[in-house]
Amino acid sequence: MDWDDLRIFLAVARTESLSGAGRRLGLDASTVGRRIARLEGAVGAALFLKTPQGYQLTAEGARLIPPAEAAEQAAAAASEAVRVEAGITGQLRIGAPDGCANYLLPQVARDLCKAHPGLEVQIVALPRVVNLTRREADMAIAVSPPDAGRLTVQRLADYRLHLAAHRDYLAEHPPLTSLQALKDHRMISYIPDMIFDRELDYLSATGVETAQISSNSVAVQMQALRAGAGVGIVHDFALPFAPGVTRVLTDSISLTRSFWLIRHADDRGSRRLTLLAEALAQGVRAEIHRLEGQLPTPD
């Protein structure tokens, strides 16, 4: 059985489409379809059932997943065995919530690429948890540890969040002397039905039920604060990127959350990914510390 056919089989299983697998592998969909047909001929069984939702594994296809993934791991190990130790090369795809992806990972990626000039870093910012089982990324950062799946989880770092607003907004609106005073202000927060993790439900900590301006993106919320649109809870590490936005009511609300690094359990034997995971963890911790350290001490 050809390993390259198994590689294509895994891509279709993970993306549930020929075109998605083709984009991932740099092949056209018709080539992917032909290779799947060739593999099905070799095993003597249909591996996928085409449905309106995409290509779904048959029972025979599901049974092929474990040996195909074992072959994938063996190929990766062989590649690592001949890789020059002077620097890590190839592609690293990191999935992360957009606050981390926007304000932390660009600097971390810069340092990784400086240390390893042959490395290509891809940052996937999604308003949901990245699916490592489908190999959407090599590793992922999340705001809660997963409770299912064949995954390994490592606590990265804690970070803090506070209410904040632009100085111009504060100058034009009633004084913010207590949480009760928030009723006289426009609130900025997440769209309630698009909160994908309970740890992101910051608005409930304020006692305010409704935000007048909302987005599923932390970056959009921050831009709204910079525009003087209202008051919102944001990451302390994002504030150095928003001149004029300052923390308020720090004695009333101070939230602490954690980032978690998640990897597929099958990747534990990959020395390359382990080294990159260690460097990523160190970089994220250092960047949170650096950015939070730039903020003035709360009154």
Rank of each mutant, 00 (worst) to 15 (best):
R7V: 13
I8W: 02
R14P: 03
T15C: 10
S17A: 07
S19E: 15
R23L: 12
R24G: 09
L25Y: 06
A29Y: 07
A29N: 08
T31I: 11
V32R: 05
V32I: 13
G33A: 15
R34Y: 02
R34Q: 12
R38A: 15
R38I: 05
A42Q: 15
A42C: 09
G44E: 03
A45E: 15
A46C: 10
F48T: 04
L49P: 01
L49W: 09
Y55E: 12
Q56L: 15
L57R: 04
E60Y: 09
E60C: 11
E60A: 15
A62S: 12
A62K: 13
R63Q: 13
P67S: 11
A68H: 02
E69Y: 01
A71E: 14
E72D: 13
Q73K: 14
A74F: 06
A74I: 08
A76F: 03
E80C: 09
A81I: 07
R83I: 09
V84M: 14
G87I: 05
I88T: 09
T89N: 10
G90K: 01
L92M: 10
L92I: 08
G95M: 08
A96D: 00
D98S: 07
A101F: 02
N102W: 10
Y103M: 01
L105D: 01
P106N: 02
D111W: 09
C113R: 15
C113G: 09
H116M: 08
H116F: 09
P117C: 07
E120T: 15
V121W: 00
V124K: 14
V124R: 14
A125C: 10
L126N: 03
L126T: 10
L132T: 00
R134L: 00
R135Q: 13
V143W: 04
A148H: 13
T152M: 12
V153Y: 03
V153R: 10
R155F: 11
D158S: 15
R160I: 01
L161E: 09
L163W: 01
A164S: 06
A165F: 02
H166W: 00
H166I: 00
R167C: 08
Y169L: 02
L170I: 04
L170H: 01
L170M: 06
R186W: 05
M187D: 01
S189V: 00
I191E: 14
D193L: 09
D193G: 02
D197S: 14
E199L: 04
G207M: 07
I213C: 06
Q223R: 13
R226P: 01
A227M: 13
A229Y: 01
G232R: 00
I233Q: 00
A238E: 02
L239V: 07
V245G: 01
V248D: 06
L249M: 07
D251R: 12
D251E: 15
D251V: 02
S252W: 06
T256I: 12
R257S: 11
W260T: 09
I262Y: 03
H264D: 13
A265L: 14
A265N: 08
R268G: 11
G269E: 06
R272E: 04
T274V: 04
A279Y: 02
L280E: 01
A281Y: 00
G283Y: 02
Q294C: 13
P296I: 08
D299S: 11
D299V: 11
D299L: 11
